[in-house]
Simulated assay, not measured.
Amino acid sequence: MRCIPLSSFVLFLVAGAALAAPPPIAPARVAAEQLQVVSPANTDIGGSAAQRFAQVFHLPVEGYLSHVMVPANCGAARLLRVEIELVTGDVPNGVVVATQEVPGTALNAYGQPVPGMRMVEFAQPALLPPGHYAFTLTVPAGRRTEYCMLWLAPSGDTYRSGKAYFIARGNPPHWIELFDAAGSRDLAFQVFVRPL
Rank of each mutant, 00 (worst) to 15 (best):
R2G: 15
I4G: 09
P5T: 08
L6S: 14
S7L: 08
V14I: 15
V14S: 11
A21I: 08
P22E: 06
P22C: 01
P23N: 11
R29V: 14
A31D: 04
A32P: 04
Q34W: 01
V37N: 01
A41Y: 08
N42V: 03
N42M: 08
T43E: 13
D44M: 00
G47D: 06
S48W: 11
A49M: 09
Q51G: 07
Q51A: 14
F53I: 10
F53A: 08
V56M: 06
V56D: 04
P60K: 08
G63W: 01
G63E: 07
S66T: 14
H67F: 12
C74W: 03
A77S: 14
R78T: 13
R78V: 08
L80P: 02
E83H: 02
E83D: 15
L86C: 07
L86K: 07
D90L: 10
P92D: 01
V96N: 01
A98R: 04
A98E: 04
T99F: 00
Q100C: 04
E101V: 04
P103S: 13
P103A: 13
G104P: 01
G104V: 00
N108P: 00
N108G: 03
Y110P: 02
Y110K: 04
P113N: 07
P115S: 10
R118K: 15
M119V: 10
M119A: 11
E121I: 00
E121Q: 15
F122N: 05
A123I: 04
P125Y: 05
P129T: 14
P130T: 14
G131Q: 12
T136P: 03
T136M: 08
T138V: 07
P140C: 09
A141N: 09
R144Q: 15
T145K: 06
T145V: 12
M149D: 15
W151Y: 15
A153F: 01
A153H: 05
S155R: 00
S155I: 00
G156Q: 02
A164C: 09
F166E: 11
F166W: 10
I167N: 02
A168P: 01
R169S: 14
N171L: 11
P172S: 13
P173K: 04
D180A: 07
S184K: 10
L187M: 15
V191L: 13
F192I: 05
